[in-house]
Design a protein around this nucleic acid. Structure first.
Lengths: 253, 253
DNA sequence: CGGTCCCTTGATATTCATCAATATCAGTGG
DNA sequence: CCACTGATATTGATGAATATCAAGGGACCG
């Protein structure tokens, strides 16, 4: 971690949220320019983490939460038996580590899937500041609430959807989020392994692999290793929610 | 809603968090007595909601979140095709509606599974107050973070566990939460239908039903309709995680 | 007492995991 | 540049877990 002395001094640099392209997605959203400066004062940008490196590890005390500036992060928990549960794939503008607030230590680990840079946000200082800056408190609550909603959607996915629907939904989610950040929604690199995808979606690797080939055969995607091109977005959307063939005898409800 | 004029005046009554047995579990935890009074000022206790009644419905604007005083609440979302996804079963001391903060309207509905009474907490006033009362802000964040953790555990359950493990885990969770609230951990009523259980766990009703009979045959439980008696707690724990020793002891509480 | 919903049980179908055998890729060092 | 190595991905064959279909029984509520 401290391999090269000469970069220590740039290991953390003052941030300027105001000049960050992600500020509408991230914590500063809804915070006034002058308050944003106060936020800048507590946030530090860490030096980039290379592929495979950790942002934090399960069990680490909660000292900070992290905002992703660029790159990809996967969060995962390890069961006692050692096998892993991937809990999310996160990209620029998203906050990781919020689930540590409850217990005071991180229940998950967060690992870079690509070279990734993050902003470190000391949690106690954030807590204090958000008392004084209502817009900040609101945004923090909003982000956490958003995560709850995302988890609920994922629960629905894992509980009720077929393998095909799950993968399609994941691809759509990623595509949409990339688009939101100014990247192509049609052509992108999936930096995580098939194993991670399967793990996240509750499927075997083999199933994920077969689905990719099937989607390709059906003309929904072109897949070349980690590079995915969406060829037919509508069909992909249909695949993600075609479960609706199920007769809905809305008698109940 | 306004069916009987004569109860209107007791429809909402000032709360006294201080005298509430749930205050350590609920929002007031970590709030000083004098601040708790300020909390009391904004919270109102609604008149009991009977079985099948709604606390709020999906699409309702977020005006309040709700703390459950007694009873059982199920939260669920309706997909476009009309079929339901149960997202949680909640009991006394738990907050529902937090996932509405992100969008400003409730993404889920909340329905009473039994006669249930709740405290209504106007969200904007809570937001304001929690700026002034740091202990309150902290507890609110802690509760939301706790929900994130719970969802993550559930994700693991749905993604990687067998039907048997899922049901066992649910029963243990319920048993543990009831115990925490001073009820019997060994004998309790499950107020939700088998359908709801299956829906929540991502299983068919029939599977749930078969599992109950199997557990009974194996001597883990006695089941009589909605009444469940845990006969062999250790075996149930074993069934819940043949690999994971989830310890009930209050790591957090 | 009749109806309706809910639960249980059995038989069958289907999806997906598992096992096993390559195949491909990303490094590493010759 | 190539051979070697271990990780990762694909593909096929098989089986197990669980959904689905179908039918009957029981509980609850008017």
């Amino acid at each position: 971690m401290d391999d090269s002395r000469n970069v220590i001094d740039i290991a953390s640099v003052k941030v300027a949220c105001q000049s960050c392209g992600l500020r509408q997605l991230c914590l500063p959203a809804g915070v006034s320019p002058q308050d944003m400066e106060r936020l800048d004062d507590i946030i530090r940008r860490l030096r980039p983490i290379s592929r495979g490196g950790h942002v934090f590890r399960a069990g680490d005390p909660l000292s900070s939460i992290y905002a992703i500036r660029s790159g990809w992060v996967k969060t995962y928990a390890l069961a006692e038996d050692g096998n892993e549960q991937v809990t999310g794939f996160h990209l620029a503008g998203e906050l990781v580590g919020l689930d540590a607030i409850a217990s005071g230590e991180h229940p998950c680990s967060a690992k870079a899937l690509d070279t990734t840079s993050v902003c470190e946000i000391p949690f106690e200082r954030l807590e204090d500041l958000s008392c004084e800056v209502p817009g900040l408190q609101r945004q923090l609550l909003r982000i956490m609430s958003q995560e709850l909603t995302t988890d609920e959607e994922l629960l629905m996915l894992l509980g009720k959807r077929s393998a095909e629907e799950r993968l399609a939904a994941l691809l759509l989610s990623i595509s949409g989020r990339l688009k939101q950040r100014g990247y192509s929604a049609h052509e992108f690199r999936l930096p995580m392994s098939r194993n991670d995808i399967g793990n996240y979606l509750g499927l075997a690797v083999e199933t994920v692999s077969r689905l990719f080939t099937r989607f390709q055969q059906q003309g929904l995607l072109s897949v070349e290793n980690k590079l995915v091109t969406v060829e037919n977005l509508d069909a992909l959307k249909f695949a993600a929610g075609s479960c609706s063939n199920r007769d809905a005898p809305s008698a109940r409800a």
